[in-house]
Design a binder for these strands. Structure first.
Lengths: 243, 243
DNA sequence: ACGATTTTCCGTAAGGCATACGGAGTTAAG
DNA sequence: CTTAACTCCGTATGCCTTACGGAAAATCGT
């Protein structure tokens, strides 16, 4: 907690002993670089140390442990790109901006969705984020509770959609083959194994979708489509509230 | 792949050598039990072996490795509860059934959202699932592409919302304290550290939401709220398509 | 009936991980 | 100039997956 809010707190420590060779912020940035490159499961304290020219155990003089470092990395990343001011105009466009900001962030740092902390880290940038999200939706006639719920909905949908997108991207990157190549390679097996006519709808829709996407799916397009429907739903709520 | 579709394939092997002491299905079920108890990061081949009364390396005579076993566990879990027939009536109710089915499943097996296979396992139950989801939405005037996109949207939102819910549940379970206790314990720190007046909206809305939820959030309620808005959006799409 | 072959079960070892503990050396305070 | 505090890091413990090879069991072919 003190580490998270370190920018707002002085460093009250006595200054005895050798100077630290790097700073907490450098450790955090090194950690982000490792996670960006290798993903969270392969994120290790040793790799962070290597990247800083330190030995493994020295890292523990900067942060208490692995999970705390990850918590710091999350808040750092949230503050990475300044929140743009919300456009004047319909709520729809403002919420779309909030959603896209998160979508881009999750794609820039795919390991964010792999973070499963059992403690809620509330850092300065996380607070800024929530405040900014609420600014987007305030003043359109919704109650405080509804405002919170709409933000939650937009974020949850964005997270779910981004998860699908990131998984798909990782699949093609790591396996080295495209959707289509995989499908063509496995088609004979599937044809032998699937009872003919057992999946009439899946076959028909899958074929149409596959031709349209030129792949098994098009996550960015699915995100835009879903977000449009979601925002239609919010406008319905606005109209209902107005009466 | 052969293991995934083993129910549709015979066992073409010669039968020499000692009998297997357990079956592949028992290994899968043991794996599910371990993952249910401990989560995927703590899921280990040794625990599966222990649960079956075998030694570690014997498991590798049933399945090729850890990730393949997890792929089998996923398809097994998808087939765990038979898909109920869709109710006659508005599309809204049918899609709500699809979403709730997945919501319940994810909460029954929270490790599902921790699975990040780099290969798309297409198993028999996964195919059944997709076919069943499409049955829900067919016949309401949407194109094949729209049908696929609406299903994707509902599933993505449900996954994102369930993720929030499961994380919150795990937090209270593992830390042993409730949202409120945590908040009360950390309030003094936060008050000292947050510039007063820096978060006017977050403070106001957070307080209102906290009082209403009796916690930091109410994920099940957020899910219902978001799903309602989402389905409002689908109905808007239906009306627009009808004209 | 009796090798040959196949298959299962498992011991060992290699190489990865987090982190507890304690020691050596460095710096500033008193 | 002593002493206390602090950084860096070597070592050790106890997890993890999985490659490899050996021993025993069960059936096949003769």
């Amino acid at each position: 907690m003190n580490l998270l809010w370190r920018s707002k707190l002085g460093t009250p420590q006595g200054t005895r002993g050798p100077k630290q060779r790097v700073s907490v912020d450098e450790v955090i940035r090194a950690g982000i670089a490792v996670a960006d490159d290798d993903g969270l499961p392969a994120f290790s304290m040793r790799k962070v140390a290597d990247r800083l020219g330190l030995k493994l155990m020295s890292i523990y003089t900067y942060v208490p442990g692995r999970s705390e470092l990850i918590g710091l990395m999350v808040d750092e990343v949230i503050g990475e790109i300044p929140h743009p001011p919300h456009p004047d105009g319909p709520l729809r466009d403002r919420l779309a901006g909030v959603a896209r900001h998160q979508w881009d962030e999750l794609h820039r740092h795919p390991w964010l969705l792999q973070v499963e902390s059992s403690r809620p880290w509330i850092g300065p940038h996380g607070c800024d984020r929530y405040e900014w999200q609420l600014q987007a939706i305030e003043g359109y006639g919704l109650t405080d509770l509804e405002m919170d719920q709409v933000i939650t909905m937009v974020c949850d949908f964005t997270a779910g959609s981004a998860r699908t997108s990131i998984l798909a991207r990782r699949t093609t990157e790591e396996s080295g083959i495209t959707d289509l190549e995989w499908w063509e390679a496995n088609a004979p097996v599937l044809e032998r194994v699937m009872p003919p006519g057992a999946y009439p709808l899946a076959g028909r829709v899958g074929t149409v979708a596959g031709q349209e996407y030129n792949a098994v799916g098009d996550p960015a397009r699915s995100f835009r489509f879903g977000l449009d429907r979601l925002l239609d739903g919010v406008e319905t709520l606005l109209r209902r509230t107005a009466t």
